[in-house]
Design a binder for these strands. Sequence first.
DNA 1: GCCCAGGTATAAA
DNA 2: TTTATACATGGG
Length: 285
Amino acid sequence: MEVLEVTEKAEGILVGGLSLFSLEDTLDCGQCFRFRRDADGWRGVAGSRPLLVRETGEGVLFSCTPEAFESFWRGYFDLDRDYAALRESYLAMPALRECARYAPGIRVLRQDAWEALISFIISQNNNVRRIQGIVSRLCRQFGTPCGEDPLEPDRTAYAFPSPEALAGRSEDDLAPLRAGWRAGYILDAARRVALGEIDLAAVAALPLPEARARLQTIRGVGPKVAECVLLYGMARMEAFPLDVWMKRAMKTLFPGCTPADFGECAGIAQQYIFHYCRRHPSLVR
DNA sequence: GCCCAGGTATAAA
DNA sequence: TTTATACATGGG
């Protein structure tokens, strides 16, 4: 296992000693929708925590306090998982190694369950650029200001809105988001969670089949969205989201394979495969 | 205009 | 149980 070198700098926390880590691979691979690249690096918000993070010659520089890094970002970016060992375990599957070659620096982010639920409800039959826009408007409309960007004090960051902040709204209230028919789904999810009918922390602890079934009682949550919530929002690395494209690609790339064949971290393998499929549309068309 | 996008609910076979 | 279709929105 590699050793993280965490040092405090004036600008933030510098993390050296990371291998198999890339901000672009991680933040632009369709698993989260609130980070964008700009001239300073990657800027975004997770929950109610704004962050600027960038790669330097010495390592990855997180513009945050040591406390925020240790208590949140370190876990969010999955920095303590041994991806090198994972990679070793994948060597036996040449097709998977080929997939990983296109984005070897992917880390599966450990996002908030509620945020992941709403984000992937919005993702259905939608494209990443538009998903980002809808989520951005959702936070701007219904989230509370949660600080300022460290380098651009005129820019306000907004938290992801709580279930309670959405539960009392109407579809008309959500119209400015331009989320289409998904607005009703967002409201159903918000009400169920706000009322306590759905306890996301409890769902996260259930055996996978029960957790899936529970999530799918939410309107607009089918097998695909449920699987995304489990993987990205509940740190269930054995979850394996499959979209229509990937189902077909799996047959040619991994004939006869099931998600279980990818082991306890099948979901991470899935992220490599997903990324590869997006860059090879001819594979599935 | 047409097709597509990290799908799902619904009805019908 | 599987298959067909509508669904709102915006970019190519």
